[in-house]
Write a protein that binds this DNA or RNA. Structure first.
Lengths: 161, 161
DNA sequence: CCGGGGTATGAAACCAGTTCGCAATATCGC
DNA sequence: GCGATATTGCGAACTGGTTTCATACCCCGG
């Protein structure tokens, strides 16, 4: 096992190129399965779990195994192209982080819709809190759970029945 | 399965009394195992996982099974006496929520120490963000991961060797 | 363009945490 | 105390995920 390092994207590089660079640098190989998985993952642009990703990958090639998807997502996470998240329900979800700012999530517990947001003032306050306790933050997770407008309306309607 | 509802503490009630009220109301029974588990859990005042809790419970009664601890913690969570959390590593941790303010966590990824904090300004900003997107928040999770002072020092020392 | 060393893959075994099914047991209202 | 019903402990089953192992593939050197 070689030391894992994630690498910064070159100015004009595509995700696929970055991955290629990473693979080469680490002495890893570019395979058909990896290409399909990465393509599919990048095309999906969402918060997918392994099942969803595997289903889509198998449209291209039904023989790809779950293990390979797990392994590939781990790889993408290590090289900094994907970020693993875990919103409660046991399934790890991945989202692309290619040239993407950090952001947090607002999750509707009714319909599962996820809104991404970013708030510098919150981040600043977080740093302040951490500093106050002598901590150096290297990661954080902020998730807000609630009902979106539609689900609120639906709930109100339901209550009235 | 009856509808689950958590109940608010009466002004002068102890956790054990609240639980008793909950059990009676739901037609459930008070057993020796449940009492031991609840007592142990409340006495521990921390963020315990099931293994830790089971170990302590077995000091009182070695025959209590893991399944019962799981079932009891689920019960406590449902009636609002405990809160389940999941900081990364696959172990669900529980903390007492009896008459406890909401708080967030600052977790040292070096030694696992957990600091609790509360910050009204962050909460206010969260509400603001949610409102802005038309959401009504009913829960949130904020976790800051970093190194505590000691682990920072240790890391610096390690790097120098 | 071919061969070989080393990596990647798929299937199945494995793992840890958690839940479930069931027979035996304990609780609680009457 | 009785009896209906909830609970327990056990082990088996399930879950998401990782690892093993034999085989297939990639890619560099010749």
């Amino acid at each position: 096992m070689k030391p894992v390092r994630n690498i910064a994207p070159e100015p004009t590089e595509t995700p696929a190129e970055l991955l290629q660079r990473y693979l080469t640098r680490q002495g890893l190989k570019s395979t058909r399965q990896r290409s399909i998985i990465v393509e599919t993952f990048l095309a999906a642009e969402g918060h997918l779990d392994v099942d969803q990703l595997l289903a889509r990958v198998r449209v291209q090639d039904p023989r790809v195994s779950a293990a390979t998807v797990y392994r590939t997502m781990k790889l993408l996470t290590e090289c900094g192209l994907a970020h693993a998240q875990n919103f409660g329900g046991g399934h790890t979800r991945y989202e692309s982080t290619f040239r993407r700012e950090h952001h947090d999530h607002l999750i509707c517990t009714g319909c599962g819709t996820i809104v991404e947001f970013e708030n510098d003032r919150i981040e600043a306050l977080q740093d302040q809190v951490a500093r106050h306790h002598g901590y150096t933050i290297h990661d954080h997770k902020l998730e807000l759970y609630g009902l979106c407008r539609d689900c609120q309306a639906r709930a109100a309607r339901g209550a009235r029945l």
